[in-house]
Amino acid sequence: MGKVIAFVSRKGGTGKTTTAINLATMLFNLGHKVSLVETDTNYTLNTLRQMELFKTGANDKSVFQIIASDDRNVINQIDTLKADKKLDFIIIDSAGKHTDENIKKLSMVCDMVVVPTSLTQNDLLVTFQTVEDLKPARVLNPNLKIVVLPNRVHSSTKKETIQALLEQLDAIVTESRVPQKNTFANFSTLLPEKEFLEVSKELISLL
């Protein structure tokens, strides 16, 4: 049965979409069967996928599926994908603003919730709140992994600095980090970014 990995934050702009699609493209490139569910009703990934298919002439049956959904229907969508039993991973790119109810429901059906965060004060405050909101789900879903992924980190930032900023979080903080580079901001729904391989391997190893 496919493992469910959701990218969640209490605010937009933390990098949920970029990290979700980078993980999905990398896992697919490594030979895994993947579907990505996009709950942000702007449907950025669906739009980009159609543009890339048109430009490249690629066959949409040769790439992983990107499914348009929303916070109210995503649980049913996950249940449907799980029932198929053909997928290795189900990636959820969640919307920027959640209700408490939707966060609870989503975390109950996930194997891992990833909270991407930059090291800015505003993002860190939101990350602490997001982790606190997710913690109660571990009582009913004891296998749930809550993971914080340092994102858009300047290349000169030391590992010790990141650890000091995130050490108070009651969550797993990844050793790897996503650097602040244009290659991650200008993402593709078809091609994996090779520098995301280390992050992908670490996330999967935590499951």
Rank of each mutant, 00 (worst) to 15 (best):
N29T: 09
A164I: 01
R152H: 13
V173H: 03
N46E: 00
P150M: 11
L124N: 05
S155F: 13
M112L: 13
L45H: 01
T130A: 13
I204W: 03
L27N: 07
S200R: 02
F196T: 04
N22P: 04
K33S: 12
D84H: 10
I67R: 03
N42Y: 08
G12S: 07
N102F: 11
G15C: 07
K145W: 12
S62H: 05
A20N: 02
N143H: 15
T56P: 06
A137R: 09
T47C: 01
D84I: 10
I90C: 02
Q121I: 15
S200W: 02
N102K: 12
T183Q: 14
E167V: 08
I66S: 02
V139A: 15
L30Q: 12
L197T: 14
V114G: 05
I91V: 07
F187V: 05
A20T: 05
P116T: 07
D111P: 09
T80W: 10
L206S: 08
L119F: 08
E38D: 08
V178C: 03
I5P: 00
D88P: 06
V37Y: 00
A20G: 06
I204K: 03
Q77T: 15
V126Q: 09
R10I: 11
L140R: 14
E101A: 15
I78A: 08
N122H: 13
K3P: 10
N73W: 07
E160P: 00
K145D: 12
D88V: 06
D60E: 13
L30E: 09
S9F: 01
R138W: 07
T18L: 06
S35Y: 00
K145T: 13
Q168T: 10
L23T: 01
S118K: 12
N42C: 04
V126D: 09
I67P: 02
T183L: 13
P116D: 06
N102D: 14
K145H: 14
M112E: 11
T161Q: 08
M1Y: 11
I78N: 05
A58Y: 12
E195G: 12
N22C: 04
E198H: 08
G13K: 05
R152S: 14
R10Y: 06
I92P: 01
M112P: 08
K61A: 07
V199G: 00
V115I: 13
E202T: 11
R10S: 10
A58R: 13
I146E: 04
A137G: 11
M26N: 07
A164H: 06
S94H: 03
I90A: 00
K33W: 03
I162D: 01
A185S: 12
A185E: 06
T117F: 04
E101N: 15
L125Y: 12
N122F: 15
V139D: 14
F64Q: 05
I103Q: 10
N22Q: 05
I92H: 00
N102S: 15
I75F: 05
T25K: 03
T47F: 04
K55L: 14
L124S: 09
N186P: 00
V147A: 10
S35H: 02
A58V: 07
Q50K: 11
H98E: 10
G13N: 08
P136A: 11
Q121P: 12
A68H: 01
H98W: 14
